[in-house]
Design a protein around this nucleic acid. Structure first.
Ligand code: SF4
Ligand code: SF4
Lengths: 132, 132
DNA sequence: TCATTCAAAGATATCTTATGTCTATAATAT
DNA sequence: ATATTATAGACATAAGATATCTTTGAATGA
């Protein structure tokens, strides 16, 4: 029960892209070096972000990744869901009726976490850093 | 990023023990059958609950497990921590200074979830079921 | 005392997931 | 054309989850 390293990579990359130029893409080479991870692996992770429309990829010379221009309001939850999937943290093999109270408690707890992640956007983070 | 099955087993066992007699222990055989899991494996899980003092084990004939009498206020978080450990869900290989905003957001989110799990006790759950 | 019934603990096995690497392919700028 | 870059898929390795088996030790009750 831990967040994946892939999520960590995704978050750091997103923050970097957010702070960088919105037009000139950054190569995966640079992004990977920054985080001490192999470019091919990071690329694999970023592809998932591309598929969910959070970032854009540019092939060819001077290519790389940049934020998707359409979405200014990307939340932590968006990023995490793109990497970890959207399945519930507490899945039962069998579902034993509607009024299962154990499941109810667990899902409520999960929702508390998700709610906070949904309410925190990359923008908030950048703001926080400029204050410090 | 999912809760372990062991956590599921632990929660169900705790609820069962909570509803059962506080003196007469229930054998792991019965508890395991109830959940469709092997007795030896469940035993291994329950041992962790014993070590944290949440339940008591009784060896010998008519032995088994029963709730610890000392703790009437066991929370979901207690149980989960006993099984999954208490480490943060978002661990970085290296810690990059105090004012890391990414980590701050993640830990805050985690705390929201933990807070809810800490505020929900087995008692609450039993109450809920008697109402239904 | 002694056999029976249990949990505890350790060694081992299997399966799944995470974490990558390698190679081939497609797209793009110069 | 050629160099550069992302994409995709196959493959490899390591770690963790999920057990099983066997031995040990504790408690009971006959
Ligand atoms: S938590 Fe509820 S639905 Fe899930 S296995 Fe337990 S009883 Fe069934
Ligand atoms: S989240 Fe913060 S502490 Fe963790 S790796 Fe990133 S910068 Fe470092």
């Amino acid at each position: 029960m831990k967040f994946t390293k892939a999520t960590n990579y995704a978050l750091h990359t997103m923050l970097k892209l957010f702070e960088a130029s919105p037009v000139k893409p950054i190569g995966v080479q640079e992004l990977a070096e920054m985080q001490g991870v192999s470019p091919t692996y990071l690329s694999k992770i970023l592809t998932r972000l591309v598929k969910t429309g959070m970032i854009e990829s540019v092939s060819g010379v001077n290519g790389g990744y940049r934020l998707s221009r359409k979405k200014e309001d990307m939340t932590f939850l968006d990023i995490i869901h793109a990497i970890e999937g959207t399945a519930s943290l507490f899945e039962c093999d069998f579902f034993h009726g509607d009024e299962c109270s154990i499941q109810a408690v667990m899902k409520e707890a999960e929702e508390k976490m998700e709610s906070h992640l949904k309410n925190t956007k990359l923008t908030d983070l950048a703001l926080k850093q400029s204050q410090a």
